[in-house]
Computed example of a mutant assay.
Amino acid sequence: MNSGDLILSERIDREILCGKKSACVLKAGLVLENPLELHRLSLHIQDVNDNSPHFNEKLIEMEISESAEKGYSFSIEEAHDADIGSNGVQRYILQANDNFILAADGSKVELTLENKLDREKQKEINLLLTALDGGSPQKSGTVVIHVTVLDANDNAPVFPQAVYKATVPENAPLKTIVVSVSATDADEGVNGDVTYQFGHMTEDVANLFSIDSRTGEITVMGTIDYEERHSFEIRVKAKDGLGLNSHAEVLIDVIDVNDNAPEIYLKSLAYVSENNKPGSTLCSISARDPDWRQNGTVIYSLIVTTRPCDESSEQLECALCVHLFLHFIYLAIK
């Protein structure tokens, strides 16, 4: 390459590379020879609106008692968009109907009962909810909300806290209990029978954790790698026997374990001549340890050894052959 142009070898997908991070930067090293120079490049990847909003389910089933009072709100799983910023989900539209209005604030989406239900007049109601992003051209996603009108289940499950926090070490054994969530329902019988499930989550996260629908225990089901992801945010849904539900957030921080050895990257070959001046650069060597902080600290040391010339040496007049052995000692300080 003589032009100095940086050419992509394959398509860059920002969502796969950086997920929801606000800044997406690719870092690379560039070695120039004659003279030897090492440069670092930072490529900032810009987001484009190439993803549509989508809901975790194509059909949302809700069961609401006809005794529900005007102004009562029902939580709806929000839509998700892999894009960020204005290209992400910006607003929602609820199809016109006689009973419900929409209340959306950030990631919180609720149906609010504007007029009381009457099971004797209408046993089922279908609502169309549309999520819109702010990109150009604008993209959208829809979900049908199917409401079954029931008799008297007037208490939703309640979590004692809105956010649960937990930690788990990377490479934790399968079935390790991370945290337990619990919600209570003031109703009796089937109306107060609470079960648990995860809200929307990507496939890779779904393969790492599971939740017991009866106990609310969240356990490890896959290999957790700190170098791939430092934390997880999971929404948990508690639902009673007739459909009323509430949500809580579970924040899981991954603890780094010193499970990676440093790797050496030889940037250029070493050339030594008898006329080399003091301070001359012989070669460029780099090492990287993917572990975090102290576990990823790399210390370099240079060991110089000498040995006498042997008879096979071309320079018979030299009294001593100097051999440089570059040894890199890596200390993961704990």
Results as ranks from 00 to 15, higher is better:
C18M: 12
F198V: 05
V178C: 06
N97E: 10
V181F: 07
D187S: 10
V158E: 09
N34S: 14
D5T: 12
R229F: 05
F328V: 15
G29E: 13
F232S: 00
P308K: 11
F198S: 01
H39M: 11
H54D: 15
V298Q: 12
S65V: 11
E227L: 12
D105R: 07
E311S: 10
H146C: 03
G216Q: 02
V149T: 06
A103P: 01
V143W: 08
E317T: 06
T130L: 02
D187N: 09
T142A: 01
N56I: 05
K20S: 06
Q95G: 10
D225Y: 12
A79T: 07
E63M: 07
H200A: 15
S65T: 15
D47H: 04
Q197I: 13
C18F: 15
K139Y: 03
Y300R: 11
T305D: 10
H39D: 08
L17C: 08
E188H: 08
T223S: 05
R11F: 09
H323A: 03
K20V: 03
S180C: 01
D187C: 06
A166E: 01
I93M: 13
C18P: 09
I303Q: 13
L41Q: 09
T130V: 06
C283Q: 13
V205R: 04
N51R: 15
N126A: 09
E63I: 02
Q90I: 08
S213M: 11
Y265C: 08
R235L: 15
V205W: 05
S42P: 00
K165G: 03
F74N: 00
S284F: 13
D187R: 03
I64R: 00
T215C: 11
N126E: 12
I218T: 00
V194H: 01
L8P: 00
H327G: 15
P53V: 05
L117H: 01
S22N: 15
V149N: 04
T305S: 05
F55A: 02
F159A: 02
P53Y: 05
L316M: 11
D185Q: 00
S284N: 06
I101G: 10
A162T: 00
N245H: 14
L129F: 12
T215A: 12
D253N: 07
K267L: 13
P169K: 11
K121N: 11
Y226K: 10
I224G: 00
Q161A: 13
D185V: 01
I16R: 14
L59H: 12
Y265N: 13
D5M: 10
H146R: 09
T215H: 09
A131T: 03
